[in-house]
Write a protein that binds this DNA or RNA. Structure first.
Lengths: 178, 178
DNA sequence: ACCTTATAGTTCATTACTGAACTATTTTTC
DNA sequence: GAAAAATAGTTCAGTAATGAACTATAAGGT
């Protein structure tokens, strides 16, 4: 197990204190920004690992599931591997492997494309559709519970803030210098 | 490469559309909540991978770096592996490996504890301190740029919202049912 | 004091992911 | 319309993480 399931709030508190101590040694540190980014990472990671744990009982992991969901949401339930790997932010290499898994489990078919013979068409099967319809609804109460404390206004606020942050990521070139 | 560096805003937009199409097929889906959680994951992941790319030039990855930072922030620059792995949310197994890496690079020492002979004491070296002081300041402009668009008030708002979400994670038992 | 239980760190096997190299196609360019 | 460049998918080798099993030490209960 990763963090022995220590409460997230405790980990956030430890993070703040850690950053405060670093800030004492490096006075120019933009402490609030560091805390915000690390909290974002923490929350995202927490969600992913928890979701993963639930999916594993059904023989899927988070990336298999996301891939399946994209297919589920696609017109005619089909897409090319390279489109998929863009959409779920994974390498083509990995999408080959995920395809293997999903095909082996009968959730997806993989057939050569007729229009472009380099390509493959992945298509969700009836069994895949059924699995999605079985797995997803039990997640609703979890998702609503996570945001139960939030009003519509606050959810919109959060979404807007995250969207602006996404835009900032695109504007900042992370890669340059040092 | 993961997503061929497609802009984050484009990926967020694709996410929204995907969720909207899923919602058309599963009308009870709490769409806004799904989008929020996935945006959080996306942003956290984007930060981590970009940071990782920068660190790699110096022979570290994100988890090595976080471990080193926790030691940097610790009183006397020392901590036990099991404390560290709680703080950075990694397995003890992995902390052994990270210790190996950091020791091999001369950034940390590892000595048996005298009080408790099961334990090991990891301590950041002068070289480790120096590396932190060299690596961290060049990150300041990136971090401030990411939040350049945000006022103090908005940063506080975001922090408060994320904190409440963290508390909600602790309250919700993700593991139960299905 | 002794037996049980818990904790610390490691090793080992396994899972998941990536980048580079390769083959097969399609698109572009001149 | 042929050569060059780009794109799609796969294989392979390497990196990073995990959980289970193991050894050693410490703490608790009676």
């Amino acid at each position: 197990m990763t963090g022995h399931d220590r409460p997230l709030t405790a980990r956030v508190e430890a993070l703040r204190e850690g950053v405060r101590r670093v800030n004492a040694k490096l006075p120019d540190l933009p402490a609030r920004e560091v805390v915000l980014m690390r909290m974002l990472c923490l929350l995202g990671w927490e969600f992913t690992t928890n979701l993963d744990r639930r999916l594993r009982k059904h023989g899927l992991n988070d990336t298999d599931f996301r891939t399946l969901m994209v297919l589920f949401s696609s017109p005619d339930g089909m897409a090319h591997p390279s489109d998929l790997c863009h959409l779920v932010t994974l390498s083509r290499t990995n999408m080959t492997r995920i395809g293997d898994v999903l095909v082996a489990r009968g959730l997806v078919t993989r057939t050569p494309s007729l229009e472009d013979r380099r390509r493959i068409v992945m298509r969700i099967t009836a069994k895949g559709e059924a699995l999605v319809r079985k797995l997803v609804p039990p997640l609703y109460p979890v998702l609503t519970a996570l945001f139960a404390d939030f009003g519509v206004r606050e959810k919109r606020q959060l979404e807007a803030l995250l969207l602006r942050l996404a835009a900032a990521f695109d504007a900042v070139d992370f890669r340059k210098e040092s």
